[in-house]
Design a protein around this nucleic acid. Structure first.
Length: 98
DNA sequence: AACTAGACGCCTC
DNA sequence: GAGGCGTCTAGTT
């Protein structure tokens, strides 16, 4: 299984209304230090429909980047029911640990 | 070989 | 205590 494939699998597990961090994803797939590669893989994700990239945020709580625009990402997250304060997300509340 | 949607630590204010 | 800068890693293109 490719790294990207693992990433997609992990991201797909994120329930609606919850978010996960890049390091969480990296940890789940077995490469806790590949947080950066996770973002890279998501950017080039071949299946943007089944992979909710917008539910993946930084460990800082910031949204991070997004192919369609970070602003759009935040907007989507808000629609999911996630509250963002000062451009930051409550990982304590919405952070999904699986 | 160079880039990236990150993470961590250290330094400064 | 908060913010900014610099550094390192892992994987993809």
């Amino acid at each position: 299984m490719n790294f990207s494939e693992k990433v997609f699998k992990a991201v797909k597990r994120i329930p609606k209304g919850s978010v996960s961090t890049y390091s969480e994803i990296a940890e789940i797939i077995g490469n806790p230090d590949a947080s950066r590669a996770v973002g890279n893989a998501l950017n080039k994700n071949p299946t943007p429909i089944i992979v909710p990239c917008h539910r993946v945020v930084r460990s800082d709580g910031k949204a991070g980047g997004f192919a369609k625009g970070t602003k759009k990402k935040i907007e989507l997250l808000r629609k999911e029911g996630i509250e963002i304060k000062n451009n930051k997300i409550d990982l304590e509340k919405f952070g999904c640990k699986f």
